[in-house]
Amino acid sequence: MMQRVWALALVTCKEGIRDRSLYGIFLFALFVLGLNIAVAGFFMRDLGKVTVDMNLAALSFAGLLLVFFIAINLMAKDIDKKTIHLVLSKPFSRGEYIWGKYVGLLLVILFAQAVLLLFSCATIASVHAMYPNYFAGFSWLVFFVAVFFVYLQQALLCAIVVFFSAITSTSFITLIFSMASYIVGISLEEVVFYLRSQAATQEVVASAALQRTLEVVSWLVPNFAAFDLKLEAAHGLALDWTRLGVTCGYGVMYIVILLLLASLIFKRREFN
């Protein structure tokens, strides 16, 4: 079973890495990193913070593009062009197909992020060398932990893409749903806490129905904001390792449950 999952993952990964649009995404990320070097001088003191901000933004935004375009394309092309007939005519179970594809997508993103991380480290090191006095709060450890969580966030998003690809028939619907999930997931926490603070300070209580809906949504959609350590990395703030552990476990659990659901649904699906 592992062998089949791994074989499909490798094929998916090669197919993704050799896609031309990957170069476009690389170019975009490199542009942001170059912009970072150019812009750094405009700031007064917190150059380290601005540099980390821009680097992490480049990595995470490139990751989003990767998921929304390359990952969705890799999932959808199989079904659109009926390559899935070929794959499923080999002794793959539907579940193995889902996991193989998912691991393949993770490999694509891992590869792209590793390349970008290399460039990103070079950028930080060069800005560091240009303005050595303004990197007081900077810590490589926190930066790498933040990068890991950016990756974890994209792994979650990939699981969402795989899930929606398993239940819908067109890539456009997958794109819309996974984008919506991301936007809701990243902003949900802010809205929930804002409403809570409103309810606490003012006597106005947001309507019970709204609260209830948000509660339900928070169970369905992962809280992407929990994986966002950009501010911590930017200022080299101390990390709370138990918090990171819980977040990590939360993400992994969400992925596993979602993919199991996806394979359950995929088992019932027919491929014309």
């Binding site: 062998q3 094929v11 197919e15 070929l86």
Partner: peptide
């Protein structure tokens, strides 16, 4: 299949490797 669409960016050797590996 009719008009088989194989993975575009793989080489023929990689495709056949995949076929073999998936059958153990």
């Amino acid at each position: 299949p009719e008009n088989p669409y194989l993975y575009d960016h793989l080489t023929l050797r990689e495709l056949l490797q995949f076929a073999g590996r998936s059958c153990g």
